[in-house]
């Protein structure tokens, strides 16, 4: 079988390639500058696209590589990836499975798992899907010997123009690899309250993460720290949820944690259904007590 993997982030190609490489020839497509990240994972060839990537011109470039040549096309899920997946879906009349976090090839078919009903259920499907979007971080990348050759290809000029670009402040943290996460929700009330949480983060040698409103609406934390269905999927040894109600879209991102601790002043908060230890109370009273208990 022949597989194609697309991601604008070269590192997202590695895990999917690792999963696929024993089943056939795997080709990768990424953006110029990203290709170096995925050359040690047993891919047959990597195409690096030169130019400013938008949905339309990436789709055209993929068509030039000739999508009909491949048995299956995997796209790492991202805003760009999903736009392209939709475009491909309309050009090759096939079932498309989106947001898969696990899959198995079953002869001519593929078995996939994804969340459904906003994260309340896991939907397992079997289909002949030719296009599958995959959640980043779903498969562990493993290197192999040898180096993948790179082919450069040009992106056409997009009909979308970039008028302005604002680089974002990035702390370069990687909450997915932190052994302990202290995660904050709307319950902390204001950005300044983070100062009161930091002693706990330090006491557990952990990292700070947060719910979607904290990272996206209020921007108290940067987006790379968002946990959830539309954020990072984390599996720390300990996940400490402070002032997070535990909506299903949040749970979907931290379900893999080993031990979950929740602090919430509402006894009926849904997070208490998804925790190992729950303390009902004001987080601003609980956190200092916990810090001093840990220091003893």
């Amino acid at each position: 079988m022949k597989f194609l993997i697309f991601s604008e982030d070269g590192s997202n190609i590695c895990g999917i390639a690792t999963k696929l490489r024993d089943n056939g020839e795997v080709y990768g497509v990424t953006i110029e500058g990203e290709e170096s990240k995925c050359l040690q994972y047993g891919l047959k060839e990597v195409y690096a696209l030169k130019g400013r990537p938008m949905g339309d011109n990436c789709f055209k470039a993929l068509n030039k590589i000739d999508l009909t040549n491949f048995d299956r096309i995997f796209i790492s899920s991202s805003p760009l990836g999903r736009d392209i997946a939709g475009m491909i879906a309309s050009s090759i009349r096939s079932i498309v499975i989106t947001e898969a976090f696990d899959f198995h090839l079953e002869g001519e078919n593929i078995r996939t798992k994804r969340f459904f009903f906003g994260g309340k259920t896991i939907l397992e499907e079997e289909s002949s899907a030719k296009v599958i979007t995959v959640q980043p971080g779903s498969f562990e990348p493993e290197k192999v010997d040898g180096n993948t050759p790179v082919t450069m290809a040009d992106l056409e000029v997009s009909s979308i123009t970039l008028d302005q670009e604002v680089e974002k402040e990035r702390s370069g943290t990687d909450i997915e690899s932190a052994p302990i996460l202290v995660s904050i929700g709307r319950g902390i009330g204001k950005k300044e309250a983070i100062d009161q949480i930091m002693p706990l983060v330090e006491a557990v040698h952990g990292e700070l993460s947060g719910s979607r409103p904290v990272c996206l609406d209020y921007k108290w934390l940067t987006e790379e720290r968002q946990v959830g269905l539309s954020g990072k999927k984390v599996k720390p040894r300990v996940y400490i949820a402070l002032g997070i109600s535990g909506q299903i879209q949040h749970i979907a991102g931290m379900r893999g944690s080993k031990t979950v601790i929740a602090v919430n002043k509402d006894k009926d908060a849904p997070i208490f259904q998804e925790c190992d230890y729950g303390i009902v109370g004001d987080l601003f009273q609980v956190v200092p007590k916990l810090v001093s208990a840990l220091k003893q």
Partner: peptide
């Protein structure tokens, strides 16, 4: 999940500190 819920804050803090220390 174990779902051990503590309404007594001090008891809860002691248990949670123990659990965290175990994982550290």
């Amino acid at each position: 999940r174990k779902r051990q819920l503590f309404e007594d804050m001090d008891k809860g803090v002691a248990e949670v500190a123990k659990a965290i220390r175990g994982e550290m």
